[in-house]
Every structure is written in structure tokens, then in C-alpha cells.
């Protein structure tokens, strides 16, 4: 009887826990934060940017961060802002570091899977010119637009419903990258690198295969008649040689010297075990 009751209670407990977890997951709502400490945006720009950022909350928290005062690297600065607030929740931070004149995109959680460092680099490559011109709103807005494309991850259909066969979409398809972030430099540099590697590997192949092969001494001698008889080998003492080698300098006693166990302090990284996830990429401007 007790066993049955225990089993029923266990089932109820498990089901309620599972539904609670599902409910929790459903309940997670992502935020938009604009923390413009460097005062780069006007009020109207902030409002417009917030509107631009809202669609991204479908995928995670979305933060605009600017600072005039940063002694850390950009990754740590963005991480130290994001992690205490949201932990490992999905989200992205667009950071404008005015002190180091650097823009940086930090992502965490599921967003990080879609926007790894290499992709973050591409986005900042594409928008850094706005930052160079002081167009902070344009810079952030375009960055969010491209982040959104990456998070959405599907090729947009044209208004007629047909696929858009642009060069970038074809290249994107060939490279297995369905997003439509413009990456002209990636394609040009990869094309040139591939060409150089193609020419180089072909040339090395040519060099290797066009060489005249010289036979080894062994191969030459295999083609000869060889007779080799050695008999009556004998040795006789022909003299003596002495070498000065003081005993004190000899290496016969290896016991002394600077042996011993390593009793020094075993240092361990006692610093706070920081959360190691999160990543991103950036660009000077």
C-alpha cells in the first residue's frame, strides 16, 4: 500500500516538476536595455533604437552599452555587465568603447551559437564606418539588423515569393551559410587565399613529380658484383692514452646538487572562477 502511494506521489511530483520547468521556460521574457553612459545617442535616437531592438528579444536579451571609461578588454567589460544580470541566458550586447575607440559584440547562451566571434567580427567590420563618422545610431541599428538576420538564419524571400538569387546568397549557399550578412571581404580574401593555395599545392606537386630520381648507394651496389671476405681479425695493444678528468668534476655522483622535492607553494588560480562562456568580436573605429 505504502509502495503504491509512494509510486503515485513520485509520478505526480515528477509531472509537476516537468510542467513547472516548461512553464518557467515559457515564462522567460527577454529585455531590451540601453545603457548609454558615453551619451552617444539623443533621446529620439534611443527611442528609435529601442524599437529596432525589440524584434531581437524573440531570441534573447539585447543590450546597447557605451562607455567612456574602460580599463578592461571589451570582452570582459561586456561580460561583467551582462553576466551578473542575466547569467547564462541567451542575449547579445553591442558595446561602444569610446576610451579605446572600439566596437564589440558580445553574445551568450543560444545567441552565441548563432553569433560566434567570427560572425561578430564580420558585423563589426560591416558597421565600423558608421562609428568612424560618429553615426552611433546608424552603427548600432545596422549591427542589430545583422544580428537579427543571423539569429533568424533563413534566406529572405523576395516579395514575389521566389528565392532571391543574389551573388551573396549563392556564395552563402555554397559556403553553407544561409544568413545574408554581407561578407564581401571574406569571399575576396578566401578566393585569393584559395587561389594561392591552389597554385602553390599544384606547383609543389609538379616539383615533386618532375624531379630526376637519383639512386641511393645501396641501389647502385645492388647492381654490382660484390665479394666481401674478412678473416683472421685480430687486435693487439698498440699504446695507451690518458685523459685528465678530475674525480670531483666527474658526473659519477648524481646524488648531490640541487635535487629535492618541489616543496614550493603550489599556486592555484584563486581568483573568482569566472563564467567562461560568452564570446564576441569587435573592431577599432
Amino acid at each position: 500500500m505504502n509502495k503504491k502511494l509512494f509510486f503515485v506521489l513520485f509520478i505526480i511530483f515528477t509531472i509537476s516538476l516537468t510542467s513547472l520547468a516548461i512553464a518557467n521556460e515559457e515564462e522567460v521574457s527577454y529585455e531590451v536595455i540601453i545603457q548609454d553612459d558615453a551619451d552617444l545617442l539623443t533621446d529620439s535616437e534611443e527611442a528609435k533604437l529601442k524599437e529596432d531592438m525589440i524584434p531581437l528579444t524573440e531570441y534573447g536579451n539585447i543590450v546597447f552599452l557605451s562607455t567612456n571609461n574602460n580599463s578592461q578588454n571589451q570582452h570582459d567589460y561586456a561580460h561583467d555587465y551582462y553576466y551578473p544580470k542575466y547569467g547564462e541566458q541567451s542575449g547579445s550586447v553591442f558595446l561602444v568603447d569610446m576610451e579605446n575607440r572600439y566596437i564589440y559584440i558580445y553574445s551568450d547562451g543560444k545567441n552565441l551559437e548563432k553569433i560566434p566571434s567570427s560572425k561578430a567580427d564580420i558585423i563589426t567590420d560591416n558597421v565600423y564606418r558608421y562609428a568612424s563618422n560618429g553615426n552611433w545610431y546608424g552603427c548600432a541599428s545596422h549591427a542589430y539588423e545583422q544580428i537579427y538576420k543571423l539569429l533568424g538564419g533563413s534566406i529572405k524571400k523576395s516579395s514575389s515569393g521566389n528565392n532571391n538569387y543574389s551573388l551573396s546568397s549563392i556564395l552563402g549557399f555554397l559556403s553553407g551559410d544561409a544568413s545574408e550578412i554581407p561578407m564581401p571581404m571574406k569571399y575576396i580574401s578566401n578566393a585569393l587565399i584559395a587561389l594561392v593555395l591552389g597554385f602553390l599545392t599544384t606547383f609543389i606537386y609538379v616539383l615533386k613529380h618532375s624531379k630526376l630520381k637519383m639512386p641511393t648507394s645501396e641501389e647502385i651496389l645492388n647492381n654490382c658484383n660484390i665479394k666481401f671476405q674478412v678473416q683472421n681479425t685480430s687486435a693487439e695493444l698498440a699504446g695507451e692514452r690518458r685523459v685528465y678528468s678530475p674525480v670531483s668534476e666527474s658526473s659519477g655522483y648524481s646524488g648531490h646538487g640541487s635535487g629535492g622535492h618541489s616543496a614550493g607553494h603550489s599556486s592555484h588560480s584563486a581568483g573568482h572562477s569566472s563564467h567562461s562562456s560568452g564570446g564576441g568580436g569587435g573592431h577599432r573605429f
Binding site: 678473416q231 683472421n232 681479425t233 678528468s245
Partner: peptide, 26 residues
């Protein structure tokens, strides 16, 4: 051979052999 004091002694040998060697056709 041996060590005596601060010196190491080596014996030198003359090794003799009777050979009948031919490499024909190089």
C-alpha cells in the same frame, strides 16, 4: 681501460684483418 687518480686511461689497439673484397661494376 681504467681510472687512476684524476686520469682516465684508454687502450689503443691495432686491428688487423685479412680481406678479399671486390666491388665490380660501379
Amino acid at each position: 681501460s681504467h681510472r687512476r687518480g684524476d686520469y682516465i686511461y684508454y687502450n689503443k689497439y691495432a686491428i688487423k684483418s685479412d680481406v678479399d673484397v671486390a666491388y665490380e661494376g660501379i
